[in-house]
Design a protein around this nucleic acid. Structure first.
Length: 875
RNA sequence: GGAGGCAUAGCUCAGUUGGUUAGAGCGCUCGCUUCACAUGCGAGAGGUCGUAGGUUCGAGUCCUACUGUCUCUACCA
């Protein structure tokens, strides 16, 4: 046994990980003799490197997986990455821009070549990072959302949904990012409140002096207006309905229509209708058969429909249009206004609602069973409150726009025929049109929303659409753990996809965690530059310290702050565990350590074994409830307080007392407790526990990774015995207490008088008491009256301890100390009193200051009385 | 507009189904070269648990209202 004085994770983490890999401990196989336990990773985007959020994901999942594996389950942690269509494409466009290239320059194939190269580089880096974290993934199953099987699943699902009429193509209002030049789903738009204006515009009625005032936050869209709507019940406008307005600047004649959509109370009660650029207006347009006039190009410039403004950027056009409206008298006024503006979640450009031909998933039929599954508890959210958020979103869900005008992703499996114009939707690449057999077909240029493939992750990674043995064994998965920020993007979509395509819910538990924030509570982001690289933390403190700090003190669903001091606290704890183990193992050298079953347990032994059992129970219970923070905290307290501070200190008497039999027995208990505690701790901090555990006598050549997780043993609970042991600790605490309170050095040996109902247990541990309390001898008494000397005493829950005053303090020294203290206090009293006697101070100084001074005076008077009393005691 | 979270020690947070004297880490004070560990040991100080009500034998915990704060969500032109 050769352990360094200080815990140094660098020395063994990489070595152990490699060993685990070599021995194949991470591999999970379909084993009929075992119960499966599966978690699929929330696949990180290949856009870059992992951050602390991923570190938290991995720590939680790995802790659960290791826990279950040790309990004998066929535990599968399935790793992989997401191609992250739009996010990656943005990165690659940036990369090309640095080289002076555009997508057009390199073409689709050239672009995809770069994308795959990117994937190789960053996907590989992510895997390396995860390995550094110590996660026990089955790397033989490493998946990628665009690998062969996932792609097959995507096509299968797309075609099936299409054939059921649940995927359709059509012109709808979608969110358009003019910078990424693609459509976005509703979930991909982030709203933020911005200061803007209401521009009130006046549209004249044709052939009349009348006009209608409408308001807009996007004046440039007025070029595409094809009506003005009023509420049918609105008496103010009743006579206007059906009349014709002349659109300023454009001169187009547009009708006034009546529609319930209009809120009479809001603004002027009249709304300009721009079907091509607003989702509500689009609906109104459908109801009134209004023309749809799109005035903007895909890049955010105005198109030929915009007439004189054609070619101008949307914001330049806005300025010019406002100017021109003002010039022609159509601008009534401008009113400051705050409103929510949607931004692209990847590039943060302002999105434009635009009418566009896209592919959609019809959501209503899919949402219903997905809602039922959660409502009927087939899927349980932890914490439960997130189920409400899920219901809220699912119940109001709209059709999902799945086509993206991007190149990196799953290309839509639809081919258009140049001859007959029909579509061929196929799982495999067709060579001819399914309708007219023409060879002149071309595939849809667009790719699918990246979340379309993520939605299939729990089954596409396990062999779907094939019903493989793996699929049958490991699916449905057990727990899905991720941040609450992707409930809509990912969790919800996996749920309805799993039910629809496999007929089963994809997982039984959804365990949500919060966001890892920086020390000041801010979200970590590139723009703030406050991101933390897990690898740097690991380099400095080791993976175990990072894991432990991420998991401790955090409940499910709660945000957490990263801080260096927290990692340090974790490291300090592990150093403590390291040294406690070093102590135990050093003492084992050259000894034959008996198993617990062969040891006659002392009261102290029974106490620590009892504490261990209750720790096992607590940890197991909390792991099962996903309360990892509580489980980790329980272990922290057990190891540091019970094991190190008490039992190890108590054991020294037996170890060093010269009785070889006692020594061996005590070592047996120390090893038993340490062995169990390490196994309990292993899911959280795999490396250090492995490094130590295999050195415990009897564990040679074995691995803690595949050792059994401790099981609560009622026979070892020793509740009564543990309770009976308490006076021993109480006596020690009481003596330490008294010594400190009178400034007596801990090393000064004092005589003790103890009044305790059960003398036997104290007697049996007298050696420990003398050592830990710093005492010379113990005498038992019935009460204080039996003690002849003048004493100081302390009453505890289980006993009363008396210490002769003369033993505690050197009367001369103590008198001198107290006199000096008294002098100082008297000086303070004089000073404060003088100040308060000064009328100028009392009247003119801030009241708080005067109060403070009064309080000080009172405090010092109190202290004076106590010290005087102590002096009298010494006489 | 709707929904939800949070509010506990100087700071960051635990507190599991309501049950003695509300805990931890860091910081602070005092004392320790105690033979595993100064990344440590021992002893402390510090909280009317956001405010006001209510339910209860009993409330940090449950209910109501309010205040502050953060977040999600929504089509108010």
């Amino acid at each position: 046994m050769d352990m360094q004085k200080n815990y140094d994770p660098k020395e063994f983490e990489d070595r152990l990980y490699k060993e685990w890999m070599d021995k194949g401990y991470f591999r999970a196989e379909a084993d009929p003799a075992k119960i499966p336990f599966t978690i699929v990773i929330p696949p990180p985007n290949i856009t870059g490197q992992l951050h602390l959020g991923h570190a938290l994901d991995n720590t939680i999942i790995d802790a659960l997986i290791r826990f279950k594996r040790m309990q004998g389950y066929a535990a599968l942690y399935l790793p992989g990455c997401d191609h992250a269509s739009i996010a990656t494409e943005v990165k690659i466009v940036e990369q090309m821009k640095a080289e002076g290239l555009t997508k057009k320059d390199v073409g689709r194939d050239g672009f995809l070549e770069r994308a795959w190269a990117w994937k190789e580089k960053y996907g590989g880096r992510i895997v390396e990072q995860m390995k550094k974290m110590g996660v026990s993934c089955d790397w033989s199953r490493l998946a990628f959302t665009m690998d062969e099987n996932c792609s097959r699943a995507v096509r299968e699902v797309f075609v099936n949904l299409y054939e059921k009429g649940l995927i359709y193509r059509g012109d709808r209002i979608i969110n358009w990012c003019p910078s990424c030049k693609t459509a976005l789903s509703d979930a991909e738009v982030e709203y933020s409140e911005e200061d803007s204006f209401f521009w009130h515009l006046k549209y004249p009625v044709k052939g009349s002096d009348e006009s209608i005032v409408v308001a807009t936050t996007r004046p440039e869209t007025m070029l595409g207006d094809t009506a003005v709507a009023v509420n049918p019940k609105d008496k103010r406008y009743a006579h206007m309905v059906g009349k014709t307005l002349v659109l300023p600047l454009v001169g187009r004649e547009i009708p006034v229509v009546a529609d319930d959509y209009v809120d009479m109370e809001f603004g002027s009660g009249a709304v300009k209708i721009t079907p091509a650029h607003d989702p509500n207006d689009f609906e109104v347009g459908l109801r009134h058969s209004l023309p749809v006039i799109r005035v903007m190009n895909d890049d955010g410039t105005m198109n030929e429909e915009a007439g004189a403004y054609c070619g101008m950027d949307r914001y330049a056009a806005r300025e010019k249009i406002v100017e021109d409206l003002k010039a022609c008298g159509a601008l009534v006024n401008i009113e400051p206004h705050k409103h929510n503006v949607g931004h692209c979640y990847r590039c943060h450009s302002t999105v434009e609602p635009i009418v566009s031909k896209q592919w959609f998933v019809k959501m209503a039929p899919l949402a219903k069973p997905a809602i039922d599954a959660v409502a009927r508890n087939k899927i349980k959210f932890t914490p439960e409150r997130f189920a409400k958020i899920y219901f809220n979103w699912m119940e109001g869900i709209k059709d999902w726009c799945i086509s993206r005008q991007l190149w990196w992703g799953h290309r839509i499996p639809v081919w258009y025929c140049a001859d007959c114009g029909e579509m061929t939707v196929s799982k495999t690449d067709p060579s001819e049109c399914a309708h007219c057999h023409s060879k002149h077909i071309h595939q849809d240029e667009d790719v699918l929303d990246t979340w379309f493939s993520s939605a299939l992750w729990p089954f596409s990674t396990l062999g779907y659409p094939d019903k493989t043995d793996d699929f049958n064994y490991f699916y449905p998965t057990d727990v899905l753990s991720c941040g609450y920020d992707i409930i809509f993007f990912w969790v919800a979509r996996m749920i309805f996809s799993g039910i629809e395509h496999t007929g089963k819910v994809p997982f039984r538990d959804v365990l949500l965690h919060g966001i890892v924030r920086d020390e000041q509570g801010r979200k970590m982001s590139k723009s703030l530059g406050n991101g933390i690289d897990p690898l740097e933390v690991i380099g400095e403190y080791g993976a175990d310290s990072l894991r432990f700090s991420l998991i401790s003190g955090v409940g499910p669903g709660n945000d957490t702050r990263y801080s260096r001091t927290k990692v340090e606290a974790g490291r300090n704890f592990l150093n403590k565990v390291w040294n406690a183990s070093r102590f135990v193992l050093m003492n084992c050298e050259g000894m034959k350590v008996p198993p617990l079953s062969e040891i006659r347990l002392s009261p102290a032994d029974k106490w620590i074994v009892s504490r261990l059992e209750s720790c096992i129970r607590e940890v197991t219970l909390n792991m099962n409830k996903f309360e990892l923070g509580i489980a980790a905290g329980t272990l922290y307290d057990f190891l540091w307080s019970d094991f190190c501070d008490w039992y190890i200190e108590l054991s020294k008497n037996a170890l060093y007392g010269g009785d070889e039999g006692k020594k061996a027995a005590t070592l047996g208990v120390l090893c038993f407790v340490l062995d169990n505690a390490l196994r309990l701790l292993h899911p959280f901090v795999p490396f250090i526990t492995e490094e130590i555990w295999r050195n415990i006598p009897g564990n040679e050549g074995k691995s803690i990774m595949v050792a059994e997780f401790p099981r609560y043993n009622a026979k070892l609970a020793y509740k009564k015995e543990a309770k009976a042991f308490e006076p021993v600790m109480d006596i020690i605490k009481a003596v330490r207490n008294m010594k400190t309170s009178v400034n007596c050095p801990p090393s000064k040996k004092v005589k003790l008088y103890v009044s305790v109902p059960n003398r036997r247990v104290v007697q049996a541990n007298a050696g420990s008491v003398l050592k830990l309390a710093g005492a010379s001898e113990i005498a038992f008494v019935e009460s204080g009256a039996d003690v002849a000397e003048k004493t100081m005493s302390q009453v505890t829950e289980t006993c009363t301890v008396y210490v002769p005053l003369g033993e505690l303090v050197d009367p001369e020294k103590e008198r001198a100390r107290l006199s000096a203290e008294l002098d100082r206090i008297l000086g303070e009293i004089a000073r404060a009193d003088g100040k308060l006697q000064n009328r100028g101070f009392v009247e003119k100084a801030p009241r708080a200051l005067v109060e403070q001074e009064r309080a000080k005076l009172e405090k010092f008077i109190g202290m004076k009385e106590k010290v005087e009393a102590q002096l009298r005691e010494l006489e």
